[in-house]
C-alpha cells in the first residue's frame, strides 16, 4: 500500500460526509476532525515506532509505555466519573496490568522481549484496560447512586464500608467485563478480529495469525477482569471518610 492508494481510501470518508450533508445529520465537522486526527496520530505513531523498532533500546520502549499509560489515564480520568484521587488509581491499575501481562509473556518466553512485540501488545492491553476503566467507573457511580439507601442500611447495622458497597461493586465489575466475555464467544463467527485480519492481509500464515489473536484475546479477557476488580477495590474507600460515613460528594457523576 502506498500514499496514492491511501488517498483513494479517503472515498470511505467522503461517503459518510455526503450522507451526513444530505440527511442533515450534522456529523461533517466531527467526521473531518476524526479523519484528520487519525491520519496525523497514526502516521506519527508509525514513524515513531519505525524509529523505536530500529533502535530497539529499552529507554525508548519505556518512553512509549509511559506515553500510552499517560494518555490512557488522561482519557479515563475525564470520562470515567470523579472519584477522589482517580488519577493515581488509574496509573496504578494500568502499570500493574502492564507489568503483569508483559511479565508473563516475556517471563514464560511466550513473546520475545523486543519492541516489535512489547509495544503493540501493550497498546492493545492498556487500550482495553482504559475502555474497561471508563465502563467500570461509570457503572460503579450509577450503582452507588441507585443503591445508596442499601449502602447506608448496611453501615447503620454495623457493616464495614467494604460490606456496604459489596453489591454495587460486584455488579459494576460483572457488567463492565461481560461485553468482553460475550464478544469472545462469537469471535470468528461474526467478524474477524482486526489484528488477525491485518496479519492475514499482510501475508502472514492464517494459523499463525489465529494463534497470535488467541493470545491477545486471552490477554484482553484477563486485563478486563483485573482492571475492573483492581480499580474497584482501589476506588471504593474514597466513598467513605474515617468515620465510615458515606460521602456522596466524593463520587458523583
Amino acid at each position: 500500500m502506498n500514499y496514492i492508494t491511501l488517498l483513494l481510501a479517503l472515498i470511505f470518508v467522503i461517503l459518510p460526509l455526503i450522507l451526513s450533508k444530505t440527511l442533515h445529520l450534522d456529523l461533517e465537522k466531527d467526521t473531518i476532525i476524526a479523519t484528520v486526527r487519525s491520519i496525523i496520530q497514526l502516521l506519527l505513531v508509525g514513524y515513531l515506532l519505525h524509529y523505536v523498532f530500529d533502535s530497539d533500546h529499552f529507554f525508548y520502549i519505556l518512553l512509549m509505555l509511559i506515553l500510552m499509560i499517560s494518555a490512557a489515564t488522561q482519557n479515563a480520568r475525564k470520562k470515567g466519573g470523579s472519584v477522589t484521587g482517580i488519577t493515581w488509581k488509574l496509573v496504578v491499575t494500568f502499570v500493574f496490568i502492564e507489568i503483569l501481562t508483559q511479565g508473563i509473556l516475556i517471563g514464560l518466553h511466550i513473546t520475545p522481549a523486543k519492541a516489535q512485540y512489547i509495544i503493540p501488545i501493550s497498546g492493545m492491553v492498556i487500550g482495553n484496560s482504559m475502555v474497561l476503566a471508563i465502563l467500570f467507573l461509570n457503572r460503579f457511580t450509577s450503582e452507588i447512586e441507585a443503591h445508596h439507601e442499601e449502602t447506608e442500611l448496611i453501615l447503620s447495622l454495623g457493616g464495614t464500608p467494604k460490606q456496604a458497597v459489596h453489591i454495587p461493586l460486584i455488579t459494576a465489575i460483572k457488567s463492565s467485563t461481560i461485553p468482553t466475555i460475550e464478544s469472545q464467544k462469537t469471535i470468528g463467527l461474526v467478524q474477524l478480529p482486526g489484528m488477525m485480519s491485518g496479519q492475514i492481509i499482510a501475508g502472514a500464515d492464517p494459523i499463525q495469525a489465529v494463534q497470535f489473536q488467541l493470545l491477545i484475546l486471552f490477554l484482553l479477557l484477563s486485563t478486563a477482569v483485573i482492571t475492573s476488580a483492581l480499580l474497584g477495590y482501589l476506588s471504593y474507600p474514597s466513598l467513605f471518610n474515617k468515620k465510615m460515613q458515606l460521602i456522596k460528594t466524593n463520587f458523583s457523576s
Binding site: E149, E150, E152, L153, I154, L155, S156, L157, G158, G159, T160, I167, K243, M244, Q245
Partner: peptide
C-alpha cells in the same frame, strides 16, 4: 468505634430499605 456504636444504636428507617 463506628461499628461498635452502630450495633449499639439500632436504626429503623422510615422507608424500611431492604436488601
Amino acid at each position: 468505634d463506628p461499628i461498635t456504636l452502630r450495633k449499639m444504636i439500632g436504626l429503623a428507617l422510615q422507608n424500611a430499605p431492604m436488601i
